[in-house]
Design a protein around this nucleic acid. Structure first.
Length: 211
DNA sequence: GCGACAG
DNA sequence: ATCTTGTCGC
């Protein structure tokens, strides 16, 4: 379905959100994780970087550049980024076991943020990790691994997670085919040294034409 | 009108 | 997101 207006985008989110699964597939044992990010200049450059979870080395990557016509609107972020991210995912020579998106999953006004959208359209388990969050949350403890709930109307929709001591926590929520505990463990695996997941850092660098 | 507001 | 100086720490 073509989506070009705000109303159409919201209708599309409401149509797709029931397809989100909050259950991790039986025997889920991811060997690879993909980071997704888009960098903007006069156009957009989407980058996907697949890392081996055991070594955090890059095993595959893809870049797609094109025009971006949908504006940035909080709550409709996916409609700005997915048109370039999906083609980039298709260019990969391997299918990643999980997608780590730079944004929200169900911690979203309609419970259908970028990570959910990417997961449902690809069928790949996904999570959303962002640098800031909507909704209510309190600062987690000071140690790596400490977390607190992100809530909306007293309903848990995600977690803050301290990935590194002395710095602001990250905000994570499940995207698709994923449970929050598995997502938390995955993010900790991806953050041995820096606040943000290695997947996100590599995709960000790649989208900027570095590396 | 005012504050909130993923990137 | 992007703009943009200095500063602290490994």
């Amino acid at each position: 379905m073509k989506v070009s207006t705000e109303d159409e985008a919201i209708a599309e989110q409401l149509r797709l959100r029931d397809q989100v699964s909050q259950e991790t597939p039986e025997g889920f044992a991811p060997k690879t994780a993909a980071g997704l990010d888009v960098h903007y200049t006069d156009r957009g450059t989407a980058a996907v970087c697949v890392l081996d979870l055991a070594t955090l080395e890059v095993v595959d990557q893809a870049v797609v550049t094109g025009s971006v016509d949908f504006p940035y609107i909080s709550g409709l972020f996916a409609f700005r980024e997915l048109p370039l991210l999906l083609p980039a995912l298709e260019k990969l020579s391997v299918t990643p076991d999980v997608l780590v998106c730079d944004g929200q999953g169900i911690a979203h006004p309609r419970r259908f943020g970028l990570a959910c959208h990417a997961g449902v359209l690809t069928g790949i388990p996904s999570i959303g990790v962002s640098k800031s969050a909507n909704g209510g949350w309190e600062m987690p403890g000071p140690n790596r691994g400490d977390w607190t709930r992100i809530e909306d109307e007293r309903r848990p929709i995600g977690r803050t997670l301290r990935t590194r001591e002395g710095v602001k926590p990250v905000f994570l929520s499940i995207g698709h085919k994923m449970d929050i505990d598995t997502a938390t463990e995955l993010v900790l695996t991806l953050t041995p040294k820096y606040r943000l997941p290695e997947t996100t850092r590599r995709a960000d660098r790649l989208s900027r034409g570095l590396d």
